[in-house]
Write a protein that binds this DNA or RNA. Structure first.
Lengths: 217, 217
DNA sequence: GTCTATATCCAGATAGAC
DNA sequence: GTCTATCTGGATATAGAC
């Protein structure tokens, strides 16, 4: 008769551990987070964590895998390669902006990981970059955006702007001039970025051709 | 007669310690760097570091102060507030780009500091932001750049693009399609960014007015 | 599966000789 | 000013009872 206190539930325990670890790793990085802290936050003992995940590194990898899972399911439909540039850029910028807003731990973990010396990109990251680069190449080919910019750099401008916004979000919001602007700071930023990017990428008769070779393969 | 081995030279010792510490803090952050490592790299004993700087934190603060000193002397002449936008943006983007290229530890220390929870900005940082924001406000007022963007956001787009370039520099360069592009990747990025920003900020008759109140004070 | 107790290591900091 | 030797604390990880 299983009426004893139901503490033994491996799946639930693992979930508790991963949730606690994700928050702590995002906040303090890998080295700065102790197994003890994770255990306290998750409400289990330290050794139990190592039992389930073998080592602190094991927990870390499992956290990253969980985030990638969420990421993949949020960005399931790939963009149409022949969509008009205006529409594509709106989708791209808007969904990237929203993803980081809704998943703040992802940006933090990526930044920590980068500084802490993780060499390799996250699984799927390269393909993701590649997909957007491809789009810019083809939009340039049909004259839908200006042809004189390196496609990868276009991607960087947009990513960099969104990264810095969420990375220093507190600072930017605190810095806003009054309550009203503070409340709409996110909308305003997204709107400004779209306006800036759309005009910055618009073609003009005098543009030189991009002199790269297009994609490698 | 002072002909004994001249090891007792406080200033030189401090310099050795600060140089070693700056590299290590930039590479591994504050928490990730041990006094022992600094001592080994500087060629002095651990306790001597604490003798000169009182604590590990003391070393860290001294390193930041040294960087700010370099930064201030590199950026001494403030930009002319009435310079034409094209010229101003070229100067601003170009000098910021070059400063991070020549002082890679600054960006790294700032990123570590931010993740490790340093709340307050570096000394002089706010004034620096303010100065550039001011410029954009006045350029908007005289119609030299489009008037519908929040000035602070313009600043973010440019900073963000430059940050991400140097932060992931290795990645971007490795990713370049061939040797020739790799070698000129920095020039190309700077050029693309200038082209993108200049067109992105160009005024157009249909623009709405920026509805903020301008500066607070 | 989960705990308590503990081994082992390495950190920052101090004491005191030179 | 600089060193060696040492203290103290907190980290990961393990042993072994339940």
């Amino acid at each position: 008769m299983p009426r004893e206190k139901q503490t033994r539930n491996a799946e639930k325990t693992k979930r508790l551990i991963l949730n606690a670890a994700e928050i702590l790793f995002a906040e303090k990085g890998f080295a700065g987070t102790s197994v003890r802290e994770i255990s306290e936050r998750a409400g289990v003992s330290g050794p139990l964590i190592l039992f389930h995940f073998r080592s602190k590194e094991g927990v870390y990898e499992a956290v990253k895998a969980a985030i990638i899972g969420r990421y993949a399911s949020a960005n399931s439909p790939a963009p149409r390669p022949n969509a008009p540039a205006g529409e594509f850029i709106r989708d791209f910028v808007g969904s990237m902006f929203a993803f980081y807003r809704d998943n703040p731990t992802m940006l933090l973990l990526a930044k920590w990981g980068h500084l802490e010396g993780e060499a390799d990109p996250w699984p799927g990251e390269d393909e993701w970059h590649h997909m957007y680069e491809e789009y810019f190449v083809s939009a340039q080919a049909r004259g839908d955006i200006r042809g004189d910019l390196t496609p990868m750099n276009i991607f960087s401008f947009i990513c960099g702007s969104i990264h810095i916004w969420w990375e220093y979000h507190e600072h930017f919001v605190r810095h806003a001039e009054n309550e009203g602007l503070r409340a709409r700071a996110d909308d305003r930023f997204l709107n400004d970025l779209l306006g800036f990017a759309l005009r910055g990428l618009s073609p003009s008769p005098g543009d030189l051709e991009y002199s790269g070779t297009g994609r490698k393969c």
